[in-house]
């Protein structure tokens, strides 16, 4: 049960990253690999602030968000002002961020041993909230701190998802959603498509940086490698969520992305429980996204073939 709560917590945190990936993927149509770097960036900025004691969990978390935004703005700048291919822009920034992150941390791993983090705050608050160090959930006994942490993270994710939904319905957010789909129209209506893209990528990577900052606090360390494969993870969550819900309306789609992330994390935890080698995690995730992208095409082709066979009497065999 503690394992399950842990998986839920991480799944929720990574849902923030998945919301970011969804923003660049569904609005601008790009799989923005910057997120591999901005997740680690958010984590390292938060970790360094927390270890130095120069910031509490709240400020450190917000700093992770801000750092991610800056990374996204750089990618957006490369794409729009420098006219560099979207994929390449992401690769360039991600690669540069690897060194930046090492510089921020000063080494490849920063443990948060004695720092006050969201996790320690939850550990302290849990017994107060639940009147004891352990809580009985039906047949299960779980540590109150873990449960408090889960609730705190859930509150953050709900707030962020609501905020994102609100933003996408503002004048500027509506223009942003239209700018990816119909740039010609939105330019003719006087919106600066390039600026909207920079802002959109900043928000997307800000969410990913936020996820990194929270993740570091929950797992108790920041690591230079922790962002690797993040974009694929995010896509897997988005795709899984869309498979559950369809794509519209927007509020449902955002919720589905969050659920997709949680579900995917639970599936992974389950697979690990059944003996999946942790080294194969990224491979499995990539295969999942691959299958999700290719299967619909194969099914469509198979259906067409079936339809043709039915339409041609005597089957579809050649002469």
């Amino acid at each position: 049960m503690t394992l399950l709560i842990g998986a839920l917590t991480i799944g929720l945190i990574l849902a923030l990253a998945a919301l970011g990936v969804r923003t660049s993927f569904r609005i601008f149509g790009i799989a923005d690999i910057t997120v591999d770097g901005s997740l680690t960036l958010g984590a390292s900025v938060a970790a360094v602030l927390l270890v130095g004691g120069s910031a509490g969990p709240l400020v450190a978390t917000l700093a992770g968000f801000g750092a991610g935004m800056v990374a996204g703005m750089v990618t957006g700048f490369l794409q729009t002002r420098c006219r560099i291919d979207a994929l390449l822009s992401g690769i360039l920034v991600m690669t540069a961020l690897y060194s930046v992150n090492l510089h921020i941390m000063g080494r490849s791993n920063v443990p948060l041993l004695h720092a006050r983090t969201l996790a320690t705050v939850a550990d302290a608050a849990g017994p107060d909230w639940f009147g004891g160090g352990e809580v009985a959930l039906g047949r299960w006994i779980v540590p109150a701190g873990d449960l408090a942490l889960l609730l705190m993270v859930a509150a953050i994710v709900v707030a962020v998802a609501l905020g994102l939904g609100w933003f996408f319905h503002t004048e500027i957010g509506t223009a942003m959603r239209a700018s990816g789909e119909s740039p010609q129209m939105i330019r003719a209506l006087g919106a600066d498509v390039e600026r909207l893209r920079v802002i959109g990528l900043a928000i997307a990577n800000g969410l990913v940086g936020l996820a990194g900052a929270l993740w570091a606090q929950v797992q108790g360390f920041a690591d230079a490698q922790m962002g690797i494969g993040m974009v694929v993870w995010g896509l897997a969550s988005v795709i899984l969520g869309e498979a559950l819900s369809g794509t519209t309306p927007l509020g449902v789609a955002l919720t589905a992305t969050v659920l997709g992330s949680i579900l995917f994390r639970l599936l992974i935890a389950l697979a690990l429980g059944f003996g999946l080698n942790p080294n194969d995690l990224k491979l499995v995730t990539a295969l999942f996204v691959f299958a999700a992208l290719v299967l619909p095409q194969l099914i469509a082709r198979w259906r067409r073939a079936q339809a043709t066979r039915r339409a041609v009497p005597g089957g579809g065999t050649g002469p």
Partner: peptide
Amino acid sequence: RRGRTRGFRPA
């Protein structure tokens, strides 16, 4: 909002 600023008001 053609030719006007776009802000954080509901669209």
